[in-house]
Amino acid sequence: MQQQTIHIKQEEKKIWNILENVTDPEVPVLTILDLGIVRNVAINNNDVEICITPTYSGCPAMDMIAANIRMELMAAGYENIFIKNILSPAWTTDWMSEAGKQKLKAYGIAPPSDKPQVCNSGLFAPNEAIQCPQCNSYHTHRISEFGSTACKALYQCDNCKEPFDYFKCH
């Protein structure tokens, strides 16, 4: 019995490692593990169940992510793959890994702040101090709270003048 449990744990770990190969189609430097959208991996006999959660309700990448998970697992020899979409608890940028944040910055997207200051619903919320991913200046301003994808806001650096995406806190 105990041995079986250990075996399952090892198998699950193997699957987590395989999932490292699946990236976000919109932000290809991030793996789905960096994003924190894989919530659970479970093995039951020959069935593999993967629970994923969307970043935003309308995220158009979810179907493709599910398909890519399936492809990776099939390539590794798994057959009975069940991908479950769960909504609660709702995804938050707090689940993004430190490695993910570093990768985002290197890619030119400002990562979500550690301590979000404006995740509130107040009107004309003050601009969050977001660091420019190019020149590291905090002298930046928000152009729009909505950006090229649902998860990003548009900023511009007042120092190097470069516009950039900010992966907004959520």
Binding site: Y56, S57, G58, C59, L87, S144, F146, G147, A150
Partner: peptide, 20 residues
């Protein structure tokens, strides 16, 4: 452009919520 993107982002959220 920025406001076009904003309103269509909101539209996408509403569509996602409708789907759920």
């Amino acid at each position: 452009l920025e406001q076009d993107i904003a309103i269509t982002n909101i539209t996408l959220d509403l569509l996602g919520q409708a789907r759920n």
